[in-house]
Amino acid sequence: MLKIVKAEICDLTNSNLESIYNWRFKEYRCFFATEYVPSFQDHKEFISKEIKENSVSWFFGYFQEKIVSCCCIEKRSHKINSDRFTMILTRVMVNPRWKRKGFARQTISHGIECVRRNREKYRVVLEVFNTNSNAIKLYEKMGFVDTQSKGRMRTMELRHD
């Protein structure tokens, strides 16, 4: 069973951070628009800063006591209507050995639910590369619909029924 936690500083072990670094900059590199790859230390500091400042919520999925998935959700309040906010889903990653097991879906669903608690008015948006067909299929199954396509990217929003 997948155990999902909102990441805290104590979850930022070198092992977890190295796994995410490898997925993000080695396995998923084909999707990046640039060849720039930050150092592991820069990556570690970046994630630590986000968690300390609570600017982005990271969610880690553990299976058999090892990190196998993660995602980030950034909350942005609307300036006009303070009880409504937008959640931006980013950095959805799964260990390549554990793909197609439902871990991405579970991690995303858990993250959205944790962030949106006590808020009725919210929207969830994401951007995905047009070439990432597996991710697009997953997002569509979860209820995301296309809202815009520009160049290599498409924007999707979670439909509320």
Rank of each mutant, 00 (worst) to 15 (best):
K52V: 13
S109G: 01
S48L: 09
T155D: 09
C72Q: 13
N118V: 06
D11L: 05
I80Y: 10
V56Q: 07
H78R: 13
M93F: 00
Y28I: 11
E45S: 12
I67G: 07
A33I: 06
E127A: 12
V68K: 00
E35Y: 04
Y139H: 02
R123I: 14
T155V: 07
I108Y: 05
D42Q: 11
K66C: 07
P38G: 13
R159S: 09
T147N: 04
E74Q: 13
V145C: 05
D83I: 13
C10L: 06
W58M: 08
F63A: 14
W58F: 14
M153C: 06
R76I: 15
R117D: 08
I47T: 05
D146P: 04
V125A: 10
N16A: 09
K66L: 13
A135V: 03
H110A: 02
V94T: 00
W58H: 14
R116F: 10
N16D: 06
R100Q: 03
V37N: 03
Y28Q: 07
T90G: 02
R97T: 08
E113W: 08
S149W: 00
K52T: 11
R105E: 15
V115T: 11
I136K: 13
K121W: 12
W98P: 01
E50D: 11
F85M: 09
F40C: 04
K75T: 14
I80F: 11
T131M: 12
R152L: 08
V56C: 13
I47N: 06
E157M: 08
E27G: 09
D146L: 05
D146A: 04
F129R: 15
K6C: 02
V125T: 14
F129Q: 15
C70S: 14
S133N: 11
R154K: 11
S133E: 14
R100E: 05
W98G: 00
E65P: 05
V92Q: 00
E35F: 05
S133Q: 12
I67E: 04
I136E: 04
H110P: 04
K101Y: 02
F32N: 10
I88A: 04
D11A: 06
S19N: 15
N134Y: 03
N16P: 00
D83V: 15
F46N: 12
A135D: 03
K137I: 08
T34P: 00
T107V: 02
H43R: 09
V124H: 09
T131N: 15
E157R: 06
E45I: 07
K66D: 11
R159K: 10
D161R: 03
M87I: 03
D42T: 05
R117P: 11
